[in-house]
Structure formats: C-alpha cells, structure tokens
C-alpha cells in the first residue's frame, strides 16, 4: 500500500484530503500545533479500516522537516505521494505590511514546500514513481487585496511545481497544483453573511466550495490513471476564475 503525507492535515482542506485518501493509502497526518485534532483525524481513518499516523512538524524549519521524514521512513519506507497543503495567512495591505508578515508567509507557504518536496523527491526518483500535489489558491492566480504575501507565496508554488514536473517526468513522477477558490474552512470563516452572498453571486456554481470538492480531485491525481497530467494548475472554484 502506498504512503501519503498530507501537511496541515488536522483541519480544513488537509483533513478532508487525509480522510478521503485514508480509504486507499497509509496516511501520515502532518500537523504543527493541533496534536489533538490531528490524532482525531488519524483515529477516524483507523476506525474506517485504514492505516494512519499523526506526525508533528514545522515545515518552515528544514531540521523539523528532516526529523518528520526520518520518523515516517522508519515506519513506512518512503513517502510515495506528498500533498503540500500546510499554509498560513498574515494579511495586511502593502503600505502597512511588516517584514515579519511577508517573511513568515513566504517561509512557510513557499520555502516550507521546497523543503518537503526536496526531501520526498529523492525516494520517488529511486522508486521511479511519485505524486506531488500543491494546494495553492485562486489568489495565487488572480491576486487579492490585503494578501500580497499570501498571493506571492501561492503563485510561487506554481513555478515550483511546474519546474519539478519537468525535472522528474522521466521517472513517472507528476507534480500538479490545485487552486481552490472560496472553500468553507476556518481560513474563510471570517467572511460575514453579506460578503458571502456577494461572493456566491460571482460564482457559476451558486454555493461556497466544500473541502471535499478539493479532496476528490486530489484523490484522482494520486491514481495511476492521472499519469498524463503534470505541470498543471487546476482551479476548483465554482467558476470564479472563468
């Protein structure tokens, strides 16, 4: 059975991905702070007959990433599929954005995914099979006011993933980006009812997205049947960027 590592899997989109993939794979539930929630996700996968382990890491820290992979590889040999999902926001308009707000978001959302991908890719090359999936955002394609740092980090993932796809395509490894639109998670819970109505107005599909809408596409991209899809950016946004 293949092993999947989902970062930021204690809640939101990452949790939904972990639960969906738990049906077919051994799932490593990566978390930074929410140990209890991550353990619950792992337990839920086990209850449904799957195999799962919650692993703490700070993706912004290379040593922490290495330690997490060492732990995973002790139990499961290698990570076959890496879902780079973990991310943070520190919103501010550009004239007021602090260096820390910029650096923290870039370090976690972009550099952190460089660390995890670099660590995972070596075993994938050796194994001549692998899947990298980056959870970006439509904000990385369209931009968003107050999110210059977040949008830059999410756009950066597109260049990272496309480059990886060209480097390792010859080894049956694909790399793709999913760009979610407005998805019902903690990260979008601040949107009030009036704004919510305005957002839905802009969409072709008249509802907010659900984490499962993302998880279903991730599940397909993990499969052998998706082997001819690589270096792509797939928006899942109810038609927002159409």
């Amino acid at each position: 059975m293949k092993t999947v590592f989902v970062t930021g899997a204690s809640r939101g989109i990452g949790k939904s991905i972990a639960l969906e993939l738990g049906k077919d794979y051994q799932v490593i539930v990566g978390f930074s702070n929410s140990k209890d929630k991550a353990d619950e996700v792992a337990e839920e996968i086990k209850k449904l007959g799957g195999e799962s382990l919650a692993v703490q890491l700070n993706i912004a820290d290379r040593n922490s990433v290495d330690e997490a992979f060492n732990l995973i590889e002790k139990t499961y040999k290698q990570v076959d599929i890496l879902i780079n999902n973990a991310g943070i926001t520190k919103d501010n308009i550009l004239p007021r954005m602090k260096d820390d707000e910029w650096n923290d978001v870039i370090q976690t959302n972009l550099t952190g995914n460089f660390y995890t991908s670099q660590r995972a890719i070596k075993k994938m090359i050796k194994n001549k099979w692998g899947r990298l999936i980056f959870i970006s955002s439509v904000v990385g394609i369209s931009g968003n006011q107050g999110q210059a740092n977040y949008a830059a980090s999410k756009a950066g993932l597109i260049g990272l993933s496309k480059s990886i796809s060209k480097e390792v395509g010859s080894r049956n490894i694909t790399s793709n980006v999913i760009a979610p639109g407005y998805i019902e998670t903690d990260m979008t819970s601040f949107i009030d009812d009036e704004n919510r109505e305005n957002i839905i107005e802009q969409l072709s599909i008249k509802r907010m997205g659900m984490p499962e809408d993302i998880a279903n596409m991730v599940s397909f991209l993990c499969k052998d049947e998706s082997e001819y899809i690589t270096g792509q950016v797939i928006p899942i946004d109810g038609g927002l960027t159409t």
């Binding site: 070596k122 090359i125 050796k126 480097e167 390792v168 010859s170």
Partner: peptide, 12 residues
C-alpha cells in the same frame, strides 16, 4: 546517464 541518473546512482 542524465543528472537525475547521477542522483540515483549516488543514492545507491
């Protein structure tokens, strides 16, 4: 042997 091949043999 391409550059990825070198990576493979080094790991081996």
């Amino acid at each position: 042997i391409d550059s990825l091949g070198i990576v493979e043999v080094v790991m081996a």
